[in-house]
Write a protein that binds this DNA or RNA. Structure first.
Lengths: 220, 220
DNA sequence: CTTATTTTTTAGAACTATCTAATTTAATTT
DNA sequence: AAATTAAATTAGATAGTTCTAAAAAATAAG
């Protein structure tokens, strides 16, 4: 079964929205997430339904089928492997990879991805800390919570970011809150939800609720 | 100026046909070379003319403009760099790279190509011996002749192949006529144009006129 | 130098993807 | 429960790429 680039993008968006814990994925949500109009989404949902990658009932909503899940995870696998390539091999900054990976993920060649995976030494996570599905679509996800949800004196390690926008990533670079950093919550301000943390046992840092909400931590 | 994938493919085909020494490139030639119908070519020529990458007069023919030349060479540069990547880094066989490189060449990112070029150590030739244009579109082509045109006792080095079809490349692999091999013409058969050569001073090889015509040699 | 042949182009249709505007269905409010 | 609002879908257009079939132009042949 072959999907077009547009179909792959829609399916990926649907997968991501489903993962975000939302009970059901709405036409408007999809439109917003891929920056298109709801009318276009309706059209595409009908098509994806016909191709049986989603189960679709007009006006009622949709559900990804096992087939759709497999295909979505394949695309995500490709996207994340390319991101690792761009950062590890071509020395892209982690805020520069998304756009290019969006293109590379649609290259069709099973051999290419197998070889790329081996070349990169079978990475388990992409530069933003998101897990890379294996060839069968299995994802080894780590239990993790938002930094904002941690309690005072709790320790952990930054393992991923929710927001991958260049602006956010560049901010993290600037303050030294990179993936892998060990942190400890020193204080939390009730009033605005901001947090004070110790990074790598040497540097203290204040961050707003907004920032802390977009940093994912593996607590220890 | 931005070209679509289809436009890039047409322009590339036109460039290659122009290079083949043909006085003028015909609609039918283009159609044959990219496996489409002449009607589709006519349509596209009109469009490429409007975009001023070719100069086009209906029924009379076309000529690539300097702009078109630049864009075609950019695409060819990308294609050949990706081929080097696939062979050198991902260990593709030289007969497996074309199809994937056809897709990769359309990825849009100047940074990506600059970085890839550096990562591959600024290669000057692709796995088939074809020269890789630099970022400005300059091509350093080597003077070379078909093996078929060499005289008896003449020596040289295989530097490229004209035909890059998997069947031909696999044949060359089998007989050990790889790029870089030093050869000497031992004998030529008038009757059928076949050639007997010495490869790397240790192995003699018979090859048909057809094969010898598709191997390019730098004579010494 | 007409006629035939080949080449090239146009006309019209199909398919993908997208949009705006209008309509339909579902959910909310009073 | 009827009326309002919000969400989702359909209808109709546009743009890109490709095709078949028909027409037009250029070339070759008698």
């Amino acid at each position: 079964m072959e999907l077009t680039t547009a179909e792959e993008n829609y399916l990926k968006a649907i997968y991501h929205l489903s993962e975000e814990g939302k009970k059901s994925v709405s036409t408007n949500d999809i439109a917003a997430s891929i920056q298109t109009k709801p009318a276009s989404v309706s059209d595409m949902l009908r098509k994806l339904g016909e191709k049986e990658v989603i189960q679709y009932r007009k006006y009622y909503g949709l559900q990804i089928t096992p087939l759709g899940m497999r295909l979505a995870l394949q695309t995500i696998r490709k996207h994340r492997l390319w991101e690792v390539f761009l950062v590890d091999k071509l020395h892209f900054a982690w805020d520069e990879v998304h756009e290019v990976a969006e293109q590379l993920e649609h290259i069709q060649s099973t051999l290419l991805i197998e070889r790329l995976d081996a070349y990169l030494n079978y990475p388990k996570f992409d530069p933003h800390g998101d897990p890379i599905p294996d060839a069968f679509g299995d994802v080894r996800s780590r239990p993790r919570i938002a930094l904002q949800e941690m309690g005072i004196d709790q320790s952990g390690q930054i393992v991923a970011v929710k927001d991958s926008s260049p602006a956010f990533l560049r901010y993290l670079d600037k303050v030294g809150a990179y993936i892998g950093a060990r942190i400890k919550v020193l204080d939390k301000v009730e009033f605005d939800g901001s947090v004070e943390i110790l990074v790598d046992q040497k540097k203290t840092l204040f961050m707003s609720k907004d920032v802390a909400n977009n940093i994912l931590v593996l607590t220890s």
